[in-house]
C-alpha cells in the first residue's frame, strides 16, 4: 500500500468514500465538506477517491446506440439553440425551416451510408443534371395521412443532397420499425432505408445519390407494407 501523504482522519474515512461516490447527502455531507476545507489530509484522500470514482465510469461496457442517434442529438441541440437559449431543452420540438443548418446536417449525413442511397442511385435515370453546387435549397413537406400531420420530410439540394425525416406521435406506445420510400418524378420508387420509432417519435436521415429535385413523394411504410403517412415534395 502506498502512503506518501498524511493519513486522513479515521472518523471521516467512511464519509470521505461516500462523498467521493456522490452518495452522501444532507447534514453529513455539509459536515464533511466543512472538514475537508480545513484538513489537507482528508482533502487529498477525497481527491484520490473521487478520481477512482470517475475512472470507474469509464469501465462501463460500450454499446452501439440505435441508428440515427447522432441525428436525433443534433436535432435536439438545434431546436434548443433556436427556441431556448438557456435552461432545459425542449424535446422533439418541431423546427422552423430556418432553424436548420445544412452544413451541420451534411457533415453528419456524410457519415451515414445507407443502402437506400444506392437503391436510389440505381433507380435514377441517366443523364440527369447534377445537383447544384451552390446555394443549396431545402424543401420541406408535411408527412400526413387523412389530413393529420405526423411529421416532416426535408430534402436539401447542394453538393450533398440529403433527406431527413422527423416523425411526431405517429402511433401508440412501444417501438416499431418503419420504412422510408420515395417516388421519383419518372414514377420509379425506391426504398431509402428503415428506422425505428420509439413511442411514436423518431427521426432519420440519409444522403441522396440523386438530385433533390428528382423526388416527388416520400412515404413512410410499415414493415407489413401499409402506408402510414406520405409527403408530397
Amino acid at each position: 500500500m502506498r502512503r506518501d501523504h498524511p493519513m486522513p482522519c479515521p472518523d471521516r474515512h467512511d464519509a470521505l468514500a461516500e462523498l467521493a461516490l456522490g452518495t452522501l447527502a444532507g447534514q453529513e455531507r455539509s459536515d464533511v465538506l466543512a472538514h475537508v476545507a480545513r484538513c489537507h489530509a482528508c482533502a487529498l484522500e477525497l481527491s484520490e477517491l473521487s478520481r477512482i470514482t470517475d475512472d470507474l465510469l469509464q469501465l462501463a461496457p460500450a454499446a452501439s446506440p440505435p441508428v440515427g442517434f447522432e441525428l436525433r442529438v443534433v436535432e435536439r441541440v438545434l431546436a434548443c439553440s433556436t427556441s431556448a437559449p438557456t435552461g432545459r431543452p425542449r424535446r422533439r420540438k418541431r423546427h422552423r425551416l430556418a432553424s436548420w443548418r445544412p452544413a451541420a446536417v451534411a457533415a453528419l449525413l456524410a457519415a451515414v451510408v445507407g443502402t437506400g442511397a444506392g437503391l436510389l442511385a440505381a433507380s435514377t435515370t441517366a443523364g440527369k443534371a447534377p445537383p447544384a453546387a451552390s446555394r443549396p435549397v431545402t424543401l420541406s413537406a408535411s408527412l400526413a395521412r387523412h389530413g393529420r400531420v405526423f411529421g416532416h420530410v426535408r430534402v436539401s439540394s447542394g453538393r450533398t443532397p440529403w433527406l431527413f425525416v422527423t416523425v411526431d406521435d405517429l402511433t401508440g406506445p412501444g417501438s416499431r420499425t418503419v420504412i422510408c420510400e420515395v417516388t421519383l418524378v419518372d414514377g420509379t420508387t425506391a426504398k431509402l432505408g428503415r428506422f425505428r420509432l420509439s413511442q411514436g417519435y423518431g427521426s432519420w436521415g440519409v444522403p441522396l445519390a440523386a438530385p433533390a429535385d428528382s423526388l416527388r413523394r416520400a412515404l413512410l411504410v410499415g414493415t407489413d407494407g401499409s402506408v402510414l403517412a406520405s409527403a408530397r415534395i
Binding site: L57, V74, A104
Partner: peptide, 15 residues
C-alpha cells in the same frame, strides 16, 4: 459537436 457525439456515443449509451 457532431464529431464529439460520434466519438463518445457508444460509451455514453453503454453506460
Amino acid at each position: 459537436g457532431v464529431a464529439f457525439v460520434r466519438r463518445y456515443q457508444r460509451r455514453v449509451y453503454g453506460l
